[in-house]
């Protein structure tokens, strides 16, 4: 069943994935047991009528966070349980969810850059700092999206985006734009922070999916390191060392 893979890569926590599979299995008169790890899923389905069992091992492709999918599948699973959907109906609904329209790229770019500017404001920057962060985020995110399109390794992608975003923000320090250009540099890479894996990792940990929780934590931590490395690279090149 593809449901599991779809949910896992869209950024659902392990417990939610298992709950949802169980619900779908119940509708179709199956009993399901699954072992979910970061890269693959092993699942056994038992037909309650014929007592036959099927076991499937499946790979999980790269992760892209998509809360619409998580939310829609969750919803569909309850509806299926309540209205006793057939296999075809579930399949149709899943395809519908899969092909749902995403936000257009320019809206994503615009709002995330605005978010960056918002960050700059939260940390006490003035309008000019916000402007610098806006542009840095815009450039960084465009690069990140482009590399994602080219199917780069996520860690390398984060590193490159971090280098580029902080490079743009560093221009702000060199030309001394705004009251505290360091704020712009600090906030320019925040859009890369892996908030969802980190929060999901804690979620998994106290639902006793310890292994998955640790895996998510480590992968999130490597992403944070990649961001930090990107920052350090730029700082070394331009020799920025003001500490305030």
């Amino acid at each position: 069943m593809n449901i599991c893979i779809m949910m896992m890569r869209s950024g659902a926590n392990t417990k939610r994935v298992i709950d949802n599979i169980n619900r779908f299995a119940k509708v179709l008169d199956f009993e399901s047991h699954a072992l979910i790890s970061h890269k693959s899923i092993i699942m056994t389905l038992k037909d309650l009528k014929t007592k036959e069992t099927y076991t499937v091992v499946n790979q999980i492709p790269g992760y892209t966070i998509d809360f619409t999918i998580v939310s829609d599948i969750s919803r569909a699973s309850w509806k299926a349980l309540d209205n006793n959907w057939s296999y075809e109906k579930i399949n149709n609904r899943l395809n519908e969810i899969k092909n749902k329209k995403k936000y257009p790229l320019w809206i994503i770019l615009l709002t995330v850059s605005l978010a960056g500017a918002g960050f700059a404001n939260i940390f006490g920057g003035d309008l000019l700092n916000m402007g610098v962060t806006f542009i840095a985020t815009l450039v960084g995110l465009s690069v990140s999206k482009f590399l994602h399109h080219k199917a780069f390794n996520p860690y390398i992608r984060t590193y490159i985006s971090s280098v580029i975003a902080s490079f743009v923000a560093t221009l702000g320090i060199i030309f001394n734009i705004g009251s505290d250009p360091h704020i712009a540099l600090a906030t320019s890479v925040l859009f890369l922070v892996p908030g969802v894996p980190l929060i999901n990792s804690f979620n998994d940990l106290y639902n006793n999916h310890i292994l998955n929780g640790i895996v998510r934590f480590v992968s999130g931590f490597i992403l944070v390191l990649a961001i930090g490395l990107g920052l350090i690279t730029i700082m070394l090149i331009f020799n920025i060392n003001a500490l305030n």
Binding site: G11, I65, D66, F67, T68, I69, S71, D72, K102, Y103, I107, I108, T111, V112, S113, L114, A115, G116, A117, G118, F119, N121, I122, F191, G195, V196
Partner: peptide, 21 residues
């Protein structure tokens, strides 16, 4: 108020990045 508003905008931006409904 202004800071909170920018927090809201930042939240929205990330929401869009995660493709919320």
């Amino acid at each position: 108020l202004i800071k909170s508003l920018s927090a809201g905008i930042a939240a929205l931006g990330f929401g869009i990045l995660f493709n919320i409904p």
